[in-house]
């Protein structure tokens, strides 16, 4: 049971990082990306390759993953600078679909659909270490950084851009730099989550980085409440432990187990949105049409 819970906790921490970083650009900068799984994937491949080719050092893998994902975040920052709202959603959708094809085809880097197997267990400066403590530490760091950035001048610039971009520009805020930095931070964070995921499961392939996962992470943020510190985390806990918890229902016949779990899961999502449209932590009175 403890091993089971620890695996679940590790996945919660990893997806918590994803949700928290996505929330940073969605909630504070108003950039609605459904391509977050792409950067999760980039980080996973980067971390896996470091572990496979060099040394399975967890910090090194995370740093390299953050660099790769953060660097390539320009692919997302570019459309973010040009368009907003639905247009940006569609652009990120395009990026997501193209990236999945690339992940499946660039076999030397990603192993194709077959993926990368036999990723060694992680170490920290040569000492074997579990992924869970590292993931929790990374999650804490991401939350801390989010809180600090959101409260500081940078956060105020972002919220100004989110609420009235031209006004922010008129006030002399460097909109382009702020957006690029925000996207870079979020994507680097997703990359770290990816590296941790690769080290945790010892196997990565393209099927973990599809649009379904981007939407899942987005749903975590929305269900928890955008623009709040703890909301995305609560959304993560709900959306990940709901299917896991439903698996404990004893009375479902084996051939219907998947369908019934999925139906309850989908129903919960819809009902939550109908009755808590601003998210569980979100402030209803503050509800805005954000896009």
């Amino acid at each position: 049971m403890i091993a089971y819970l620890s695996n679940l906790a590790t996945q919660l921490a990893i997806f918590g990082i994803l949700a928290a970083t996505l929330n940073f650009i969605v909630g504070y900068a108003g950039i609605f990306s459904i391509a977050h799984a792409v950067f999760f994937g980039l980080g996973a491949y980067a971390g896996a390759q470091i572990a496979l080719l060099l040394v399975p050092d967890v910090v090194l893998a995370c740093l390299f993953a953050a660099a790769i994902a953060g660097g390539l975040s320009l692919c997302l920052a570019l459309p973010a600078l040009r368009v907003r709202g639905e247009y940006f959603v569609a652009a990120s959708l395009g990026l997501q679909m193209v990236a999945v094809t690339l992940f499946a085809e660039l076999k030397p880097l990603t192993g194709g659909i077959g993926g990368l197997v036999g990723i060694p267990l992680p170490t920290l400066f040569g000492v074997p270490v579990g992924v869970l403590p590292v993931a929790l530490a990374a999650l804490a760091l991401v939350l801390l950084a989010t809180a600090l950035l959101a409260r500081g001048a940078f956060g105020r610039t972002l919220t100004a851009i989110r609420d009235a971009e031209s006004a922010a520009e008129a006030l002399g805020k460097n909109v382009a730099a702020a957006k690029t930095l925000a996207v870079g931070f979020a994507c680097a964070g997703a990359g770290v989550a990816g590296a941790l995921y690769a080290l945790h499961t010892s196997f990565v392939n393209v099927e973990s980085f599809t649009m379904e996962y981007s939407v899942l992470v987005m749903a975590m943020v929305i269900i928890g409440g955008t623009g709040t510190l703890w909301g995305p985390l609560i959304g993560t806990v709900i959306l990940l432990s709901l299917p896991a918890g439903l698996a404990f229902l004893p009375f479902i016949p084996p051939s219907e187990v998947g369908a019934i779990q999925q139906i309850l899961y989908g129903l919960a999502m819809t009902l939550l949105m109908i009755f808590r449209p601003a998210g569980l932590v979100g402030d209803l009175s503050r509800g805005r049409a954000t896009a």
């Binding site: 929305i222 989908g266 129903l267 449209p277 601003a278 998210g279 509800g287 896009a291």
Partner: peptide
């Protein structure tokens, strides 16, 4: 509730 763009999105996704 002046639901935002993505609230609708998630609800529809659940359906």
């Amino acid at each position: 509730h002046e639901g935002s763009f993505f609230t609708v999105f998630v609800a529809a996704f659940g359906v």
